[in-house]
């Protein structure tokens, strides 16, 4: 039995096609990431799988239960954390946790083991109203609330959006731990660098899945030559690289520019020489393995051509 199955799910809102034939499977106990920018259709997909919306066409299963017929059974066993903060802002941390425990017919004590690591971080603020917590703390509380009933499948829609890098890392560490408890986790994020911690990821744009792969497998499939290029004047470097006839794409990636080449005939030394001729200094050109973001941009560009 699969943790989550989606088969050719499509959904329109008016004229906008939010999802077009989305199919994927998540194994039980797998940490599966849906990676894509805002407007890709991630939230719609989550709402359909959590039985909140009906698809126009296609089918789906969560823990072997049909997302339309067995929606009550699904609602008993999944945990769901929507994209925006969805707790009672005027209730305290403790009161929120209690109310959600009651909703799922359980108590905080019953499943405390599961949430202990996370709850201990917010416990000092348990008398504080949820509305007065920082972004990272809110997300931790929301995660506690979603876990309070030991769900078998956990849906986290953009849990790290608007959250600082520290809290983001904390949250991902928690997800990796939860995976060890055999909980199937479907998580979405617009941050490509978070993909590395997933077992498998699906890259999504404009309502379509571009690719489903393991993070390592994704990099392997990136067959074009990819170089990281550096020099002292990075913004001039960008224009100069784009002018080179052999350069296919050139994007800024932090402290280097990532360059793909049209045909694999150019050598790194030749490019360095070309740049030196244009007055660049401290030039560095080295072949690298593709990051998830490189792959995403590459796939997105190809899809548009299709």
């Amino acid at each position: 039995m699969k943790g989550i199955v989606a088969q050719n799910i499509s959904r329109k809102f008016g004229r906008v096609e939010a999802l077009r034939n989305v199919s994927f499977e998540v194994n039980q106990g797998e940490l599966f990431g849906i990676i894509g920018p805002d407007g890709a259709g991630k939230t719609t997909l989550f709402r359909i799988l959590t039985t909140l919306l009906l698809a126009d066409s296609g089918a789906g299963e969560v823990d072997g239960f049909d997302i339309v017929k067995d929606f009550r059974k699904i609602r008993q066993r999944v945990g769901y954390m929507p994209g925006r903060f969805s707790l009672y802002q005027d209730l305290t941390v403790e009161e929120n946790l209690k109310i959600f425990a009651t909703v799922f017919n359980t108590t905080i004590e019953e499943n405390y083991g599961l949430i202990r690591d996370i709850y201990e971080q917010i416990e000092p603020f348990k008398k504080r109203r949820a509305g007065a917590l920082s972004g990272g703390m809110k997300q931790k509380l929301a995660l506690c609330c979603a876990l309070i009933h030991k769900p078998t499948v956990l849906f986290l829609d953009e849990p790290t959006t608007g959250v600082d890098p520290i809290s983001r890392r904390d949250l991902w560490e928690m997800l990796v731990k939860l995976k060890k408890e055999q909980i199937t986790i479907l998580v979405s994020t617009p941050y490509m660098d978070e993909a590395g911690l997933c077992d498998r990821i699906a890259l999504m744009q404009h309502g379509r899945l571009l690719k489903i792969e393991t993070p390592a497998g994704l990099a392997k499939q990136f067959t074009d030559a990819l170089w990281a290029v550096r020099s002292l004047s990075m913004s001039k470097l960008l224009t100069d690289l784009r002018r080179h006839p052999q350069v296919e794409t050139c994007y800024a990636f932090g402290d280097a520019h990532h360059v793909t080449l049209k045909a694999g005939l150019l050598k790194p030394e030749e490019l360095a020489a070309y740049l030196a001729g244009l007055g660049h200094s401290d030039i560095g050109v080295e072949p690298i393995t593709a990051t998830v973001e490189d792959c995403f941009m590459n796939l997105a560009a190809n899809k548009i051509e299709l």
Binding site: P37, D38, M192, Q205, Y251, E293
Partner: peptide, 15 residues
């Protein structure tokens, strides 16, 4: 946070 949630290509064009 001007580029929060924006796709990678647009994020770079924005920069």
């Amino acid at each position: 946070e001007p580029t929060s949630g924006v796709d990678p290509v647009t994020r770079r064009q924005f920069w």
